[in-house]
């Protein structure tokens, strides 16, 4: 009869290791019937694919209705763009993840970017505002997407702590501010002159430095938790 050398308990003859301490059993295995079979009763999961389809159909209804109303009452003026673009963005943000079995943040972000850009493009086309689309909307969208890519990539690969993740996110906020100000400036004045984004950067940079310093210093962290815990 097998015993666990660490815990001192007797083990079942079919046991390969002690469940209490994971120590392997030394004695050779016999073909004994294990105390429980291998088959499991599966938890019936809500079929999210089906649910996503249902929601999609519900989302299509107002779109079709709007299209019909648009065609009948105001032919020639296509305000249908707004409804369609908005639904597409909604679908990408909320319903698309339900169809995936595994979380895929990079693809998800990219698709949201595509649909949002398409939405803006449709609005730009409808209002003949290609200029603001090309100079403000497109660069800002691309920047947001790239920054999110960078954050997701770093968090997934390097697994930085909470403090480092916060500092990376803060850096991206600075970059985003610079891009927004730059594009708006270019759109309005045709030159790029940074002003308020410097203020944002100046106030965020010390926080970033503090967080980075803090993240490398366990002792200081403990000291702060000790003094400041609520």
């Amino acid at each position: 009869m097998p015993y666990c050398v660490k815990c001192g308990v007797e083990l079942d003859k079919s046991a390969k290791k002690c469940v209490l301490c994971n120590t392997e059993v030394m004695i050779e295995q016999q073909d004994e019937i294990p105390p429980y079979p291998k088959e499991k009763s599966e938890v019936s999961q809500l079929n999210t694919g089906y649910f996503a389809m249902l929601l999609s159909v519900i989302l299509i209804i107002p779109n079709v209705a709007c299209l019909v109303i648009n065609l009948i009452y105001s032919p020639g003026i296509y305000w249908m763009y707004y409804v369609f673009g908005g639904s597409l963005v909604l679908w990408m943000i909320f319903i698309f993840p339900m169809t995936l079995k595994k979380k895929r943040p990079l693809i998800h972000v990219f698709l949201i970017f595509l649909s949002a850009t398409l939405y803006l493009l449709l609005i730009a086309l409808a209002l003949s505002g290609m200029r603001w689309f090309l100079t403000i909307a497109l660069p800002v969208c691309i920047t947001v997407m790239l920054l999110l890519f960078i954050i997701i990539f770093i968090v997934n690969r390097k697994k930085p702590g909470k403090l480092k993740t916060t500092s990376i996110s803060l850096i991206t906020v600075i970059v985003l501010c610079l891009v927004v100000e730059g594009t708006v400036d270019y759109f309005v004045n045709a030159t790029i002159q940074f002003s308020w984004s410097y203020i944002v950067a100046a106030s965020i940079v010390p926080v970033i430095i503090a967080l980075v310093l803090l993240s490398g210093n366990k002792k200081l962290q403990n000291e702060l938790i000790k003094k400041l815990h609520i």
């Binding site: 815990c7 001192g8 308990v9 007797e10 046991a15 469940v19 209490l20 429980y36």
Partner: peptide, 25 residues
């Protein structure tokens, strides 16, 4: 984790009571 179970059963063993373990794990 099996810390609770391990402490519980090893306590009995230390008191001189033999225990046999079975599991579905």
């Amino acid at each position: 984790e099996t810390d609770i179970e391990r402490f519980f059963f090893t306590y009995l063993i230390k008191q001189g009571i033999p225990v046999k373990i079975e599991s579905n794990r």
